[in-house]
Simulated scan of single mutants.
Amino acid sequence: MELWIPITIGAAFLQNLRSAFQKHLKGVMGTTGATFVRFGFGVPFALAFVALLHFGRGDPLPAANQEFLVWAAVGGLAQIAATFLLVHLFSFRNFAVGTAYSRTEPAQAALFGLLFLGEGVTPGALTAIGISVFGVMLISVAHVSITARSLVTSMFARNALIGLASGTAFGISAVAYRAASLALGGPNFLMQAAYTLSVVIVLQTVVMLVWMVWRERAEFGRIARAWKPSLFVGLVGASASFGWFAAMTLQQAAVVKALAQVEMIFTFASSVFFFREKINRLEVAGCVLIVCGILTLLAIG
């Protein structure tokens, strides 16, 4: 088994854990605050990863070049924009369609990987991406009255366009992170991933801080009162991101993001086995398609 596969699965599990705790935090702070803790409280852990590799393993620090800095900035800002657009979708009465289109991230990452990095995706990988993306889209619309035809015809609705834009920004960020990490040229994929994560997460934290000082100062008090769970979100979030960056240094972003859809399986497993929630047929069908897409990826990998 190639190393990027278990790294991606582990990152997906940690991201699922982070998302669960972020939902809890939204009960005590606003969306901006809950988003900020993902970055701000992750900074010390991201820096610790670099320190551990440098002082613990003796890995030399990479030299940040112009290409790296440009791609890191593009990825960090694109991820913030993608998250903002995704959160904005929830202000629509019917946000399910938009959310479904935001899940096209792996397919869009394949396109941007080709355009920006000249990376082609094999027909088998494209098939796997398509299967898993369709499965996630099914899950996204499982609780609304919608057909396959209306899902297609609604493509030009405002919420669908916002969802597509969110998926586009997520796809760009994934490809940009891979490009940034590869631009370092060494010393190894772990240090490249940790270093890239550190630079990106510091940038995102600064951007979020400036925004909150300008527009949402009240969030600082709410964050301070919930610093303990926020610290856990920072740890888990930074660890998940380290996994994503490491996997995307080893493998194309589109392929990693397709396998990362296993996060949905973790989500439903916790819903069924821990919270005793029922899932409907569309959700079951979506989970089956995700599993089929993942198995196809593993078979060709």
Score class of each variant (00 low, 15 high):
Q261S: 10
F156N: 12
V74P: 09
A63G: 10
A96S: 15
A78D: 12
S239K: 05
A51P: 06
R276A: 13
G42Q: 10
R217V: 01
I201K: 04
V202T: 05
A110I: 03
L85S: 05
S173R: 01
V152I: 15
V97N: 06
M208H: 11
L289C: 14
I300L: 09
M212H: 08
G120L: 15
L289Q: 03
A110W: 00
L235T: 07
L3Q: 13
G237D: 08
L117C: 14
L61Q: 03
P44Y: 09
T8M: 03
E263Y: 08
S271W: 07
S19Y: 11
T267C: 05
F242N: 05
N159F: 05
Q252G: 04
L52H: 01
F274V: 14
R178E: 13
G58P: 05
S239E: 05
G40Q: 04
G130D: 01
A238S: 15
L14E: 02
M212K: 09
F170S: 00
G56P: 10
V288E: 11
A78S: 15
I146H: 03
W244K: 00
F41R: 04
L298Q: 07
I9L: 12
I5F: 01
V255M: 00
P187T: 02
P187W: 06
T205Q: 00
L14S: 00
A142F: 06
V206C: 11
W214D: 10
V207Y: 10
A226Y: 09
V255F: 00
I129F: 02
F21E: 12
I294A: 15
F266E: 05
F68S: 07
T196D: 03
R93H: 15
Q261T: 13
M248G: 01
I290Q: 10
A11V: 09
L184Y: 04
L86P: 04
R276W: 11
P60Y: 12
L61Y: 02
L209N: 13
C287R: 01
K278V: 14
V288F: 14
S150I: 11
V200N: 07
V28Q: 14
G130Q: 03
I129E: 01
